[in-house]
Computed example of a mutant assay.
Amino acid sequence: MLDAVQEKLCDENKTDFSDINALLLNCTLKPSPGGSHTDKLLGIVETIMVRNQVQVERVRPVDFTIAPGVYPDMTQHGADRDDWPEIWEKVEAADILILGSPIWLGEKSSVCQRVIERLYAHSGKTNDRGQYAFYGKVGGCMVTGNEDGIKHVAMGVLYSLQHVGYTIPPQADAGWIGEAGPGPSYGDQLDDGSYAGFDNDFTRRNTTFATWNMMHLARMLKDAGGIPAHGNSTDLWKEGRRFDAPNPDYR
């Protein structure tokens, strides 16, 4: 699955990532075990991470019953069933969260949007330093399709992740759309026996850069003990600390 350059990068790596956990949420609309083009692109990410001892789990949220809403457990707010708490346990334990999404009508999938809404349900949760729960975690995204929208989808996903507290590394997104309009999707076998997108240097390079940047930033944050709490602790703010910020002078 990796080319010679990617293999060499893995072989030459000297950084220990063995205590890093990554969760890859494939927000395809296709339940398992149906084929997923997004899954194939996430496979590149997973292969690089596993080669470097990152603990990786890949999940399709569409396989679960995720109730709509912005509360941690929607069964407490009228839903008959809500499997989100099971996924949340995996999200909470992960140092890196990657959302993979296909493009539909220029937008991320409805499954991806629902996942983001449910992540937002935990945006008020804090860690032991009074910071929001996603502080110190790394976010990124992968996008596939055969219509315009990679940057648009990435813009919305990455904004949402950083808004709830994830740290976004440089170039934390990658994708493949091929030619605009109907045509082969990522990983489709072509008439010559090759697979669409696999040999696309732009996609392979960006996917590689994004994966390594997420691993490096996760390593840096873990080694630093997360984000310093000065200036961003809700607990200290409630206690009256204003972190040296005076009230504005309106004279």
Rank of each mutant, 00 (worst) to 15 (best):
residue 55 Q to G: 09
residue 137 K to V: 02
residue 227 I to C: 09
residue 233 S to I: 08
residue 171 Q to I: 10
residue 105 L to Y: 14
residue 174 A to V: 05
residue 108 K to N: 03
residue 214 M to I: 01
residue 87 I to P: 12
residue 24 L to E: 01
residue 184 P to N: 03
residue 32 S to E: 15
residue 246 P to M: 09
residue 227 I to F: 13
residue 213 N to P: 06
residue 48 I to V: 10
residue 58 R to K: 15
residue 172 A to P: 03
residue 39 D to C: 11
residue 56 V to D: 00
residue 212 W to T: 13
residue 216 H to T: 11
residue 202 F to T: 14
residue 46 E to N: 12
residue 15 T to D: 12
residue 38 T to K: 00
residue 9 L to F: 14
residue 85 P to K: 06
residue 96 I to K: 03
residue 164 V to P: 08
residue 171 Q to M: 07
residue 28 T to V: 10
residue 77 H to T: 01
residue 26 N to H: 00
residue 139 G to M: 04
residue 152 H to D: 08
residue 202 F to E: 07
residue 251 R to I: 07
residue 149 G to M: 01
residue 173 D to K: 07
residue 17 F to V: 06
residue 172 A to D: 04
residue 169 P to C: 03
residue 194 S to L: 09
residue 73 D to K: 01
residue 15 T to V: 08
residue 216 H to C: 09
residue 159 Y to H: 14
residue 201 D to K: 15
residue 238 K to L: 13
residue 23 L to T: 03
residue 221 L to M: 08
residue 208 T to W: 00
residue 173 D to T: 02
residue 234 T to C: 09
residue 52 N to S: 05
residue 92 E to W: 09
residue 135 Y to L: 07
residue 75 T to H: 07
residue 78 G to F: 04
residue 217 L to M: 15
residue 30 K to C: 13
residue 64 F to L: 10
residue 199 D to V: 09
residue 59 V to Y: 01
residue 21 N to V: 11
residue 64 F to I: 03
residue 158 L to S: 07
residue 84 W to S: 11
residue 203 T to N: 07
residue 129 R to L: 10
